[in-house]
Amino acid sequence: MEKKLICISCPVGCHLIVASTRDRITVKGNQCKRGEIYGKEEMLSPKRIVTAVVKIRKKEYCYIPVKTEKPLLKKYIKPLLKELYRLEVDLPVKCGTVLIKNFENTGINVLITRSMKN
């Protein structure tokens, strides 16, 4: 299988051709090592950092920003978002606090990204 990708590791944006056979993946078109790593990972198990906001309890129209600590496998993005929009958190909160630990056993935590007093 062959896939055309654009590397997002740096602003150059190399156009990659990633080919996979049974036992190996080859990356062409990259200008540096990071392109090769990106190409391989994107082929095997694409992941993204997810950022969103979570409702603050008892405060109307007031939300706190959150993010996944590390990139999350793409197929878990929607379930995570659904979970986040259902949640409510109490103030005060501190930037860096873990909101969700090991989401669906992916090993990925969700962190609060801003401190807010009551």
């Binding site: 950092i49 920003p65 930037c95 990204t113 801003r114 401190s115």
Partner: peptide, 10 residues
């Protein structure tokens, strides 16, 4: 390191 906007501000 890669931060979000609110973290950078914080």
């Amino acid at each position: 390191q890669e931060l979000t906007g609110p973290e950078y501000a914080q």
